[in-house]
């Protein structure tokens, strides 16, 4: 009420001000009237241009890759190398997760899906190309005195039955278990290869990428987790399982059992640019670099040996 009467009281004052500004107002109003129209026309033209240039399968030089965050970093490197060779090509690599990658390929939002888990029954209509094998490393903080665990011990730790490092002849500290989230390929592989029918403890800390698990383990002296062997660095320590240290050699020989395939998924037999990129990844040039990155080249592992996955 108060302010209302105040407003009317100032009518004269305001009216004066308005006329004073009226020229400026006129200019403003031209802007407000047509500004959006102009902007929209520009945007419209722009969208149209983009549409014709960039929708899938219209002769563009772009490959969209999406999926597993475990494979993403490696694919990024491969893509960079590929793009160095052919500057016209753009390869967009993004995470999103194995399932999102699978779905993206099916729905044609991506050309290549990355999966670090094998396909489920209803996903089998996609074409799988194994581009590398990856070991799964059990990691602890570098200061941890534990160097070797049996599969049974690892199982008990992750099931929440062994909760103190003391039992494993280390310091008297509660174990912090760090795992990946439900649905992740890494967790799926760990569940099947190590846990079997046992559940991973509900009390475990859950993070959504290998990088985060590594980061947490590298900061917490009492923690234990599992990540891709390729991502192990000097800030964490990969421990031996049943006396075998995880290495390319041990995995190739079949002594270290925790491994899984890295899959490229495509809708149909790749052609053109897509084929070039996949061939490039499978070529000796890339495959011979894999061991440096902690991965195992496809050819080193005969297709039918190694770990058999249980049907879900």
């Amino acid at each position: 009420m108060n302010s209302e009467s105040k407003k009317y009281g100032d009518t004269f004052h305001q009216a004066n001000r308005q006329s004073f500004f009226s020229k400026k107002f006129l200019k403003d109003n031209i802007l407000t009237g047509h500004f959006y129209l102009v902007v929209y026309l520009i945007l419209g033209a722009f969208c149209f241009f983009n549409f014709s240039a960039c929708r899938p399968n219209s002769g563009r030089e772009e490959i969209i890759v999406a999926g597993s965050t475990s494979i993403q970093p490696f694919t990024d490197e491969w893509a960079e190398l590929f793009m160095e060779k052919d500057a016209k090509v753009v390869i967009n690599v993004q995470g999103g997760g194995s399932s999102a990658g699978i779905m993206a390929v099916k729905e044609k939002t991506a050309d290549i899906g990355l999966s670090s888990r094998e396909l489920k029954q209803d996903e089998k209509d996609l074409m799988e190309i194994t581009v590398a094998y990856d070991g799964l490393a059990i990691i602890v903080h570098p200061s941890n005195s534990v160097n070797n665990l049996s599969i049974e011990q690892v199982r008990s730790i992750f099931a929440g039955e062994i909760t103190n490092w003391k039992i494993l002849n280390s310091t008297d500290k509660t174990i912090t278990v760090v795992v990946r989230e439900e649905g992740s390929g890494t967790r799926g592989a760990f569940q099947e290869m190590v846990m079997g029918q046992r559940r991973i403890s509900k009390k475990a800390i859950v993070e959504d990428s290998n990088g985060v698990v590594r980061e947490i383990v590298s900061r917490d002296e009492n923690s234990i987790g599992f990540i891709s062997l390729g991502l192990v660095n000097d800030r964490v320590k990969a421990i031996a399982l049943e006396g075998v240290r995880p290495s390319e050699e041990a995995i190739v020989k079949g002594e270290y059992g925790l491994r899984r395939p890295f899959l490229f998924l495509v809708l149909e037999e790749p052609r053109g640019l897509l084929k070039e990129f996949i061939d490039f990844v499978l070529s000796d040039e890339i495959q011979s670099r894999l061991p440096q990155e902690g991965l195992i080249p496809v050819k080193k592992i005969p297709a039918d040996t190694g770990f058999e996955r249980r049907e879900e």
Binding site: F46, C47, F49, N50, F51, A53, C54, R55, E62, A66, D76, V90, I91, N92, V93, Q94, G95, G96
Partner: peptide
């Protein structure tokens, strides 16, 4: 998404 490349259009 989270692709690191310079976007080439509004569809990337």
């Amino acid at each position: 998404g989270s692709a690191l490349h310079l976007p080439s259009s509004i569809f990337s």
